[in-house]
Design a protein around this nucleic acid. Structure first.
Length: 342
RNA sequence: CGGAAGACAGCCU
């Protein structure tokens, strides 16, 4: 039994859900052993990531039979998360209700589900109920709830949460709260508040940097954003895909051709380019706006994935630059490669 | 370290 569970966990940690499911099936068929709780949690996560509804339901049935949801809050929380990732919020809520005890993670999983599906009011209600039941929020909880406040532009509520988290002394140590706050203030046009939060964080990670920078871009401060990107690099924080996309947007607004190419090179060096259609699309768009279609074409050629989005971006680029012959060629080419225009 | 968490581009309307 022990070695079967180890094998199962091994596959799950290696992100080989198919093998894991096969092992699990054999264990079920043999019918003589129990899947360990940690393995069960990982199985549920694998279903969520794989979007495997059938296996998810099967696991739910098994756990009902064994009373696992009631007895183990890890399993319950993971199942809430799985259903929420499936988009089945009613199911997620049912699981939550069927649990015998709720901790901060199970509450937060449900709140996160509501937030993810834009049920802002439900999320806020849920948060209130959680506090009524005297479960203390943690950084993840605040981050979720702040996202809800931000989306409905409830800055009053957001400020209250800001103060509350501050009273608990959670701001410095939880960058997720900081990032959510910066984002909220930026989206509400309160640039100074956002900057204040950023400056108050003990260590800023790539997300808090990127949120701040995006905020300046959204509010029209392209030069400020560009300056911050350089500062971020100087402090040794590495780009991620969001940062690159944001930087490209700035360069595009300012028509800084050299900077676009520089970002392109850095994105490639950090491996952000090859597996990310968003980065590639933004890059091609930036080149198009800068009138550098040959560079855009090079990016396209290097990119391993072909989908209609990528094709469309390229074709639009040629169209914007008045290169209509290329547009026609590419439309044909695209269909030859089995991609139909939309 | 068996569970939850923060930023989501371009085009068009």
């Amino acid at each position: 039994e022990y070695s079967w569970n180890s094998l199962l966990i091994g596959y799950l940690k290696n992100h080989e859900p198919k093998n894991a499911f096969a092992v699990h099936k054999r264990m079920e068929d043999l019918g003589t052993m129990n899947v360990s709780d940690p393995a069960f949690v990982l199985l549920l996560k694998a279903c969520a990531e794989d979007y495997d509804f059938g296996k998810g339901y099967e696991l739910h049935n098994i756990s009902t039979r064994l009373g696992l949801v009631e007895s183990n809050v890890f399993i319950g929380s993971t199942m809430i998360d799985m259903y929420s990732k499936f988009g089945l919020l009613m199911e997620a809520k049912q699981v939550f209700i069927s649990m015998s005890a709720h901790d901060v993670v199970s509450w937060t999983a449900l709140i996160a589900g509501y937030v993810e599906h834009k049920c802002w009011m439900e999320a806020l209600d849920c948060f209130q109920k959680m506090q009524q039941e005297c479960v203390s929020p943690n950084g993840a909880t605040y981050a979720c709830v702040l996202r809800a406040c931000c989306s409905i532009r409830d800055i009053t509520r957001g400020r209250e949460l800001h103060a509350e988290a501050g009273r608990w002394g959670m701001l410095e140590s939880h960058s997720s709260i900081g990032s959510a706050l910066i984002d909220m203030y930026m989206k509400c046009g309160l640039l100074n508040c956002a900057q204040e939060v950023f400056d108050s964080l003990i260590s800023n990670d790539v997300v808090s940097w990127t949120v701040l920078i995006s905020g300046y871009v959204e509010n029209g401060f392209d030069y400020k954003a560009l300056h911050l990107i350089e500062q971020m690099q100087a402090e040794g924080v590495f780009y991620n895909a969001f940062t690159v996309v944001c930087g490209l947007r700035v360069c595009c607004n300012l028509l800084f051709r050299n900077k676009v190419q520089q970002l392109h090179m850095e994105a490639e060096r950090q491996g952000l380019f090859e597996d990310n259609p968003l980065v590639c699309g933004t890059l091609m768009n930036a080149y198009a706006k800068c009138g550098l279609m040959d560079k855009g074409r090079q990016a396209f050629d290097k990119f391993p994935v072909r989908n209609s989005n990528i094709w469309t971006t390229l074709i639009l680029g040629y169209a914007e630059n008045g290169l209509f012959e290329e547009v026609c060629d590419l439309l044909n080419h695209m269909e030859l490669e089995g991609c139909s225009p939309d």
